[in-house]
Amino acid sequence: MTHTASRPGLTRRQLLARSIAAGASFMVGAGFVAARDGAWAMQTAHLEPRSMATLIQMARDIYPHDQLADEFYAIAVRGYDSPEAAPAMEAGIAALDAAAEGHGHASYLDTHWERDRVDILRGMERSAFFQTVRAGLVTGLYNQPDVWPVFGYEGESFSKGGYLARGFDDIAWL
């Protein structure tokens, strides 16, 4: 995961030039998936880049927070790009795309409305694939310390002397 799109030997412009759109939000090329605007890029070694893009979209659809950038969702699912996890993920994503086709869409990524994607996900809610991805996100997404400030959560306070002198009782609106 890199914050500004870069791959060894490639500028951001070159990288995007070597990629094609995957759904509304992502670009994919050989061995990588990137944000449409090139804000971040992630290499994949075991998953098809388009599959990784699908997983990121699915992650957002399961736990949609409009104030969170795709990058946090990408971090939450990047662990599936491993030799052990990839085959089951590819199979799950194939099933997801097949379900999207059953709903009249070209693929999951090409299903443009969130409510349609959620319908597709509801249909596979009990599958091991869905449950693995959902359960993994509970920690994969919400346990990222960089996500916490977005929700206002301040985390540990021991290093700062606790909240005793830092607003533990500062509520003013009651």
Binding site: Y63, P64, V138, W148, Y153
Partner: peptide, 19 residues
């Protein structure tokens, strides 16, 4: 905290009602 709230508020829950 936020991490435990995500795990315990409605275990198994997902979608916009949850988020």
């Amino acid at each position: 905290g936020l991490p435990f709230m995500a795990a315990f508020l409605d275990p198994g829950g997902w979608g916009r009602e949850f988020t």
